[in-house]
Amino acid sequence: MPELDQRVSGADEETVEQQAYLTRFLLDYTAVPLTGTVFLRGVLPAPDAVRIVTGAADAATLRELTAYEIPLSDEDGEPVTAPLLLGWTRTLTSAAHPRTDASVMDIPLITVDTSALEPAAPTGTDRALRVLRTLAWPFVETPPDPALCGFLLTGQNRMRLYLAPEQTNGLIAADVQLTGALTSLLAALPSLIGEEERWVTDPLDPHCAHVVDLTKW
């Protein structure tokens, strides 16, 4: 399958804010299934879109996953809300996967036309999470820096984080282990990703400008 290689560089502030908002909203669905045995495995930032990556919780390779590219605006040009994105994703994962010859990072990629896509209705779990999120994560005027614009579970113990530091032109991807001194790593993460001597380019990942390997930090 051909790889899509349009690389994400500097995104405008509005796009970064929307991708970060969508990512925050969807995080719970890495643990709560979207449908049946299908879970959220990643949210990849793309130009004017997000790529929602889904698959089984025990998927061993990226080829076992599916990515749906969904635009950040609806057919009226309005920003897509997180509940609507979730409803669309549920509809997509409930149906048979259409054939695709496209891929990104070895993940089969399906470009979605949302104009005729009916979102699934919210579940009881969705409504409960909405109440709990509102109380536990109230809106604050100052967003986190760096903003988390996406992530990808790349293995049973590894994750790639897509971060948008204010002082950097382009997204930085940080590869981390999910065991070890996570508290120390998360505290040091903003400064670590700013150290340019750590930056490398991943030719297979078009969702970032640079990659930082922190798996052995």
Score class of each variant (00 low, 15 high):
D5L: 14
Q6H: 07
Q6E: 11
V8I: 13
E13M: 03
E13S: 11
E14Y: 02
T15I: 04
V16E: 12
Q18W: 03
Q19M: 10
A20H: 01
Y21E: 13
Y21G: 02
Y21N: 04
T23H: 02
T30S: 13
T30P: 00
A31W: 11
A31T: 13
V32Y: 07
P33R: 02
L34K: 06
T35M: 07
L40S: 10
R41F: 10
G42K: 12
L44E: 08
P45A: 11
A46R: 06
P47I: 06
D48K: 10
A49S: 15
R51W: 13
V53S: 05
V53K: 04
G55R: 10
A59I: 09
A60M: 09
L62S: 12
T66W: 01
Y68T: 07
L72T: 11
S73E: 14
E75P: 01
E75I: 13
G77D: 09
T81E: 14
A82L: 06
P83L: 05
P83I: 11
L84I: 10
L84F: 03
L86E: 04
T89G: 03
S94G: 12
P98W: 04
R99V: 10
S103I: 08
V104F: 02
D106Y: 08
P108L: 06
T111M: 02
T111I: 05
S115F: 02
A116L: 07
P119S: 05
T123V: 11
G124S: 03
T125E: 07
R127D: 07
L132W: 00
T134C: 00
A136R: 00
F139M: 01
T142V: 09
P143G: 03
P144L: 01
D145G: 11
P146E: 15
C149F: 02
T154P: 01
G155T: 07
Q156Y: 07
Q156A: 15
R158H: 12
R158A: 15
Y162R: 06
E166A: 15
Q177E: 15
T179K: 06
L182N: 09
L182T: 15
A187Q: 10
A187R: 09
A187P: 00
P190G: 10
L192I: 03
E195I: 07
E197G: 09
D202E: 09
D202T: 08
P203E: 15
H210M: 12
V211M: 06
D213H: 03
L214V: 00
K216G: 05
